[in-house]
Simulated assay, not measured.
Amino acid sequence: MVILVGLLAGLLLILYFSQFNGGFGNQGDFGAFGDFIGGTLNPILGFITVVLLIWSLRKQAEALKVSQTELALTRQELAETKQEAALSRLAMEAQVKHLEKEAQRNELQSIIKTQFEIVEKLMTTSLNTRDCNFADVMNQTQEGAHWTPKFKEQFNSPNPSACQIVGRELEVQLLQLGALALEYTRISSSPLLALPYLVKARALVLGFRRFHQSISNEKLLRMLEEQIEHFQKTISSTDK
């Protein structure tokens, strides 16, 4: 634009001097030429100003459109980043819960193992009497079957004995074992992992029930059997 204006001004000067060979001419001529220049350049400069204004407005509109597009892309990226962060948070929370549950399972397995050892120890406690052998009676060996009536009579006798003391403690530990087995079924990820604990606990409670029945034993036995039946149905449906 500066070059164009300079060329135009030079062209007008050339035109002036070609008309007035005597230099700048008189003041009237020079004033008339000035009016001519003003009348000629003002519309041209006004037109150029309008063109520049339109050009400037178009550039601003294009820049605004680009800015809006970039802003929309930025918002989209922020939304995607927020969604990814939410998914990552959920995945992390799920992993933490899984690790916590796995730690609970491992801890409970260790406790159940210790509980089985306590029960086995009580069952094999030596009381220096053939009539008080919990292992034989509860496992129902041939000798145990022979001793069961006498053992039952002795265990339920109103007179406290060493056999009764061990038996009462054994009953408490069996109740604890059954409760632990049921708790393991609640947090176990697979029925196949929990089923052996339930079956073994039920077998021990059934053995104890041969010579002593109580409300607690019956309730625990019913809960164990219901859970075993439920798991067996679940495994059967999975196999099909």
Rank of each mutant, 00 (worst) to 15 (best):
I215L: 07
A85V: 01
L15H: 13
I54E: 05
L221D: 12
V5D: 09
C132F: 05
E143I: 11
H212V: 12
I3H: 09
L193M: 11
G25H: 03
L90F: 11
R75N: 10
L73S: 10
T124R: 03
I165K: 09
R186Y: 12
Q76G: 02
Y197I: 00
Y16N: 01
A194K: 01
Y16A: 02
G207T: 00
A179M: 07
R130V: 05
I3L: 14
Q109C: 03
I37F: 08
L127A: 04
N139F: 13
D239K: 15
L11F: 15
A94V: 03
Q142A: 12
A135G: 00
Q227F: 10
E171N: 13
I3Q: 13
G178F: 08
N156Q: 11
C163T: 04
K65M: 11
D131P: 00
E120Q: 09
A63S: 07
A32K: 05
F151R: 01
C163H: 13
S110T: 10
T141Y: 02
I235A: 03
N128L: 03
T49V: 08
K219M: 10
I111A: 05
S67C: 06
N128E: 04
I44V: 14
V5E: 12
L180Q: 14
A181G: 05
S157T: 03
T114C: 00
I165W: 07
L182V: 11
L87Y: 10
S67I: 05
F155L: 12
L45Y: 06
A32Y: 07
L52P: 02
A162Q: 15
I54P: 05
S214T: 14
A181W: 01
R130K: 11
L175I: 12
L122R: 00
A181V: 06
I54Y: 14
V172K: 10
A72R: 12
S214N: 10
P196Y: 09
F208W: 02
A162L: 14
L180Y: 14
K150R: 14
E107M: 08
I14H: 05
K82P: 04
F47H: 01
Q76N: 07
E120F: 01
M223K: 09
N128I: 01
R210H: 02
A94G: 02
A72T: 13
Q83V: 03
C163E: 05
P191H: 08
S18G: 08
L195A: 02
E80Y: 06
I111D: 04
K101G: 09
E77F: 06
T81W: 09
L198Y: 08
T49G: 05
I165P: 00
V172P: 01
L8H: 07
I187G: 04
V166C: 03
S190C: 11
A79T: 08
M92A: 15
R202G: 02
L174M: 12
E62Q: 09
L193R: 08
K113V: 04
L193H: 12
R210C: 01
V119Q: 00
M223S: 14
E153Y: 07
R209H: 08
S214E: 06
H98A: 15
Q68Y: 04
L90I: 11
P158D: 04
D239L: 15
C163G: 15
V5N: 08
A201Q: 01
Q173N: 14
N133T: 01
L180T: 02
S188E: 09
L195Q: 08
A94R: 14
A162Y: 12
L57E: 07
K150L: 15
L127F: 06
A181R: 00
Q213R: 10
L87S: 09
G144P: 05
M123F: 00
P158M: 03
